[in-house]
Write a protein that binds this DNA or RNA. Structure first.
Lengths: 202, 202
DNA sequence: ACCTGAACACCGTTCAAGT
DNA sequence: ACCTGAACACCGTTCAAGT
């Protein structure tokens, strides 16, 4: 058993998040418990409560890390494209690829419902908004044709659509339905939506 | 305490599902436990295991009921419309309205992940497919222009999009963003997607 | 035959007690 | 000062024992 100042508070914090990431990546949120996590870093459950407010707090910080990783990957991808359509397609495919490669970490993002009705903390909301901003920026070249409100609406409609596709794919409903891959749905959704947006009246 | 054959197996089954529906509707899946549910119908926890395989089985049957109710509501709505666009819009709005009116029962549909990797039972998959078929049928008048595969792709793309919008709305991300209501996102998604679908080349 | 409820192996969280 | 680990109030699930 680790004792005394073998590790600083910051070190324990970092060790716990890293171990939680491993546990969740492998077994999902259901595989995470205070006792198991504490054992994984050589401490007992009580120690976690000196560093995190509770398990919800810990999971929220884990999800914050996941959003950071996703944002980094998607931002790189979005920098390499030309047209709005290519950009949004690339963002969608990257999001789908991330969800498929890290099913449990991605799942934890939306399986974890914090306190009932309580709003998400600001620092977390900032990370979520930052993801949406990638889509808004990708649609930027359409800014001349669209009001800021329309741009925001389009970004939210498209992004929740991509999110829905990931959920459908993860639920296994698509499996064994040859043509209906997440990638194909993503392409259909984005191509047709943007085509409709370009061709709209008014 | 209820004893002997106060109730038949079928009666206990029905009482348990009805009580579970009340508990989940009010407190969410987290508010459901074998002990609480048994107490609500005047039995002890062991009795539930004479009627259900386990809690997962019970929740799956509860979700089956919810899908039945949703299907009935959406099917009625879909019968009253004319064009594919009007039909899909009506289905989307009805789905959103159901999710907003029954947040916890709707949430239980996708919060409940059964055994890891195990497929959903056939009788449940049938209920899910039936929902998708409503969208396919609504898109029916486009059948002349689309191959069966394209029709299926469009139905899945649209329906996962609507589902994603509901999730975004329920997560509270949209709140206090005046213009960005679930209804507005639904309309934008469907109108533009179908417009793109009609105007496509090839 | 039907149902109970103690028992087992787990939870999250707290906090007096030890080093 | 830092960390432990027993304690409390919960879980899901089983099954010998009672009526």
């Amino acid at each position: 058993m680790a004792r005394r100042s073998d590790h600083s508070r910051e070190e324990i914090h970092a060790m716990a998040l890293a171990a939680a990431e491993r546990l969740v990546a492998e077994h999902g949120l259901a595989g995470l418990s205070a006792r198991k996590l504490a054992a994984a870093i050589g401490y007992t459950q009580g120690t976690l409560y000196l560093v995190f407010r509770n398990l919800d707090d810990l999971i929220l910080q884990l999800n914050g890390r996941t959003l950071d990783r996703m944002h980094r990957i998607l931002a790189e991808r979005a920098a390499e494209c030309s047209s709005p359509e290519q950009c949004v397609l690339a963002l969608g495919q990257s999001y789908i690829r991330f969800a498929e490669s890290n099913p449990h970490l991605w799942g934890a993002l939306y399986e974890h419902h914090p306190s009932p009705g309580e709003p998400l903390p600001d620092w977390y909301q900032v990370k979520v908004d930052r993801m949406f901003q990638l889509v808004v920026q990708a649609l930027g070249p359409l800014a001349a044709d669209l009001s800021p409100g329309e741009l925001d609406l389009a970004a939210h409609a498209l992004w929740s659509g991509v999110h829905g596709i990931c959920i459908l794919a993860q639920s296994g409903t698509l499996e064994s339905q040859g043509e209906l891959t997440a990638a194909a749905l993503n392409e259909s959704l984005i191509r047709n939506y943007l085509s409709g947006l370009r061709g709209r009246g008014a």
